[in-house]
Write a protein that binds this DNA or RNA. Sequence first.
DNA 1: TATTGTTATACTCTATAACTATA
DNA 2: TATAGTTATAGAGTATAACAATA
Lengths: 164, 164
Amino acid sequence: MAETSTESTGIAGGGDRLWGTKVGDDLAFLLARANALSLARVNAALADFDIKIRHYSVLAIAATDARPSQRELSEFLQLDPSQIVSLVDYLEKRGLVTREPDPRDRRANVVVATPQGKQLAEQARDAVKVSEDHWFSILPQEDAERLGSILRTLAGSNDLATTR
Amino acid sequence: MAETSTESTGIAGGGDRLWGTKVGDDLAFLLARANALSLARVNAALADFDIKIRHYSVLAIAATDARPSQRELSEFLQLDPSQIVSLVDYLEKRGLVTREPDPRDRRANVVVATPQGKQLAEQARDAVKVSEDHWFSILPQEDAERLGSILRTLAGSNDLATTR
DNA sequence: TATTGTTATACTCTATAACTATA
DNA sequence: TATAGTTATAGAGTATAACAATA
């Protein structure tokens, strides 16, 4: 008795009742929540490989033929250059990537995946994909595709002009 | 010269070239990026009120007639109970919310907004909405609506069964 | 015995500034 | 003078465990 009008649904917890609140309509809120769930899933899928989402992002790009500099990674991933340093350090220690000097600019390092790095990147990508597909499977196929294109539009709109 | 094949577009930075990478197709990645941009905007909009997104969430719910317990807030906002404590502490010190004892369970506190709290919640909500609308206006109206319903589906799917 | 709110603590993430070597 | 990478450091955010009061 004397429960706060909350029913033990076992999974979603007692906060259900609050979905009726205005906050539940807020796109920023929904985005944050969806992202938190997504993040948890992806990191769980990557745990087997002892990396997290950020390492994975760096590794995945390094595994292409893009040959990104650390600066480019920093800009693309919206991370501080110093964060890239520690990510690359970690991946390099594990023998998954190497830093190669850029012949065109001796200040710059180009980050490239080793064969093992490429292999792990593929495995990790598969694991992430399985996990994601499972989650997004609760959406109609059409919605999943639409979501991608919508997010790409939003994610690509870097006009910070209005933010600052 | 000797630039790393990067063009100074002035805004988006040198990472543009990497959009071609597989990572750019990853829904989790896009979600994370869109969320980061959204977060920056919302927090910027809230800076005038000296609160951040988390305070706002708590305040906005406290400003309804839902009369949530801290536990409910913790579950709904997916934050640790101890985090709710400090958020409520801050809001309470500013006279925006009060902790009222729940007559049905003397262990529990119910968080309710004061009149000033309600007023600030409204102002903050307006500011957030303006900022959001501005951002989402780059989307076709139909997409903005669709995004809301898709995110609601995703955000509501708490079946952590597959995650843990 | 279990739960609510609280405190304390440690760990991760993020942001900033300063330094070096190159440009 | 400006830029790429690095280092150090401090702050914010997050997670965990333990405790008192109550159920």
